[in-house]
Amino acid sequence: MAVELYFPHDEIDTKKPNFDIAADYLELTALFSEEFRSFTKDLINAAEIGAEDDYNDVDEEMTDREEIVSGAVRRIDGRREALGGSYPFTLDENGDVLTYVGEEPSYGQAAYILSLILSHLKAVSPILYGSSVYPPDAEIIELRKYFQYFATAALAAEVNGPAWSFGHPRPDRTGFHAKLADVWSVLRDGTIGTAVGAPEKPKDDQVDVFAARIHRDGLPGCLLAAAQVATGKDWRDKSLRNHLENVFPARWFIRQPATRMICYHIIPFSRPDHEFADNCLEFGIILHRLRVPYRVAEAEGLHAQGLAIEAFDQLASAVDWVKAYATRGAAA
């Protein structure tokens, strides 16, 4: 492997391994290898190097290490099933070799790789940090913007309707009030007006994306989604649900919309199946790494048919970044 990645023993080589992290390690290893491949046995080799647990039973040790591999393979299979062609890796029939196949990535595949990288910035995970491929701070700012644009496309496909990138800084450089007026000139539900005591210089008031499936009659009562896009370790601290129901409409409308906004949380991370139901109770509908890419792929077709998706033209730049980034392993 051309790039030396950190192996998180405390999360993988334990009695309760984090199989998502193990799968991510294999994906990143494949992404940055000269031949775009990783071997599932790499998990066993990495676990053995620097292992701290003393096993009294060699058979028990091998069983635990093999369970790491089988668990990671199950997660990879699940990702492939969930994402189809938007998953930029393939696994051989025996589950031994993972290959990166996104040298010319589709929009969906680029969304996956971008999500994978954002999942392993230093505040979230140690796997990439300190390696030759860790993105510099200025680049990370751009990556977060790209993810916001992918999130806008994903939400457009989710509701099959136009979407606006509302989060600050906005791609059209408008201020908060101008952008809100722009969105509601299309939605035409409620009357915009600022409540007494509202923030004087709002940026986005926690809403990063709006999307709606508007009826042909243009009347209220449609699918109207509002999303918080969270890419940092603190994503769990940014639930939009209460704010969207009780604060945002009362703060920015003198006649509140009759249409209730559906709360979305869009993140680049993968989530354990056993925690997901509880996550939805807290955050609303969650689009994560196993949902955003295939919705982005759907959005590509919808945009080609004329659906208005703000900042969709920026996705080509994100794809170019992913293509260039994948070559850094060979360059190292």
Rank of each mutant, 00 (worst) to 15 (best):
R236E: 06
V229N: 03
E139C: 08
A326E: 05
N279V: 05
A138E: 15
D273H: 05
G78R: 15
G190K: 02
I141E: 13
A154T: 01
S70C: 06
N56V: 14
A297D: 13
G167C: 00
R271H: 02
F39P: 07
N56S: 15
V207A: 09
E52M: 05
A163T: 01
H120P: 06
A2P: 14
A195D: 01
N94M: 12
R295Y: 12
A316N: 05
G84K: 11
E139K: 14
R289A: 10
D64F: 10
Q148W: 01
A110W: 10
R173P: 01
I49D: 12
Y55T: 12
H168D: 01
L187M: 05
E158W: 00
D24F: 02
G221K: 05
R241Y: 04
E139Q: 12
F19R: 12
G167L: 02
D42V: 08
F269K: 11
V322A: 04
S115M: 03
E11Q: 10
R260V: 09
S125V: 01
P88H: 08
V319P: 08
S132R: 13
E60K: 14
R255N: 06
Y264C: 07
T99E: 14
Y146R: 07
V296F: 07
L219E: 07
H243E: 07
D42H: 11
A181I: 00
A198I: 11
Q256L: 10
A2Y: 11
G108C: 03
A225Q: 03
V183T: 05
T327I: 00
W184H: 11
G167Q: 02
Q228G: 02
A299M: 12
